[in-house]
Nucleic acid binder design. Structure first.
Lengths: 121, 121
DNA sequence: TTTTATACCTAAGAGAATTATGTATTACGC
DNA sequence: GCGTAATACATAATTCTCTTAGGTATAAAA
């Protein structure tokens, strides 16, 4: 069912809040389903946020005051828009910086070719 | 007790096997405690592998055939050395490539400054 | 009219780490 | 010579975050 060039799921762990907040920061108000679609599209299906992960995270972010909601009626359907708060903007900057730093560290670790001489391919 | 400029622990999740295999590949045989110290040193204390995470992972890697062990007696103490297997070398290349790809995708996502005009700092 | 896409949600379970222990040897400080 | 810190292994209980699976309902497309 999944046409996965997707990353193994452990990798993505810990990045969900960062991704959501970053999208909301640079993209303005979005609703849940839209977030999943946008991420999928921007990453060529490599990152697919499941709804079981998304909605609980959005609710948590709201409880923490990182995002705010407003509902909009589309026909008979209710759509819930999320907007990043000032607190959320602080958080997202911290998180993005931390992740960038982490990537540099990992790149350093994974690029190392040390002593041993045979430096196996 | 921890003098953490350390990364928030969720970030590191999913990268442990990759780090261990990569170190063993480029560094030759190493024992558990040595791995934790080397990683700590190479990352300026930013990544500190806990023993509760390390040992179960090493045992798993052995069970999966990614690494092999040999014990060495240092005085009265037993030291357990780990070496990467040919299978492990294939795995580590896949994992490193996947992680590098993942980092590029994340960098793309987190660097985006989209439409909205106000492009909040 | 039936299937697919949109749109929200929660609950049970899995997986990978943390935290807390436990054991024992060796080196260092005083 | 004696206590503390560092070395070195290990496991168990718990926590956290996500997956899998389920549920509801409207709108569009086939």
């Amino acid at each position: 069912m999944y046409f996965c060039a997707m990353y193994s799921s452990e990798l993505i762990k810990g990045t969900l809040k960062t991704i959501i907040l970053k999208l909301l920061k640079s993209n303005g108000k979005m609703y849940g389903y839209e977030i999943t679609q946008r991420v999928k599209e921007l990453t060529n299906n490599k990152i697919q946020i499941t709804e079981g992960a998304l909605y609980p995270t959005l609710h948590l972010l709201e409880k923490e005051g990182e995002v705010e909601t407003e509902t909009e009626n589309i026909g008979k359907r209710v759509r819930k828009y999320y907007t990043i708060t000032p607190k959320g903007k602080v958080t997202v900057n911290l998180k993005v910086n931390e992740f960038m730093d982490f990537m540099n560290t990992m790149k350093f670790l994974l690029d190392l070719e040390l002593d041993v001489g045979h430096a196996a391919k």
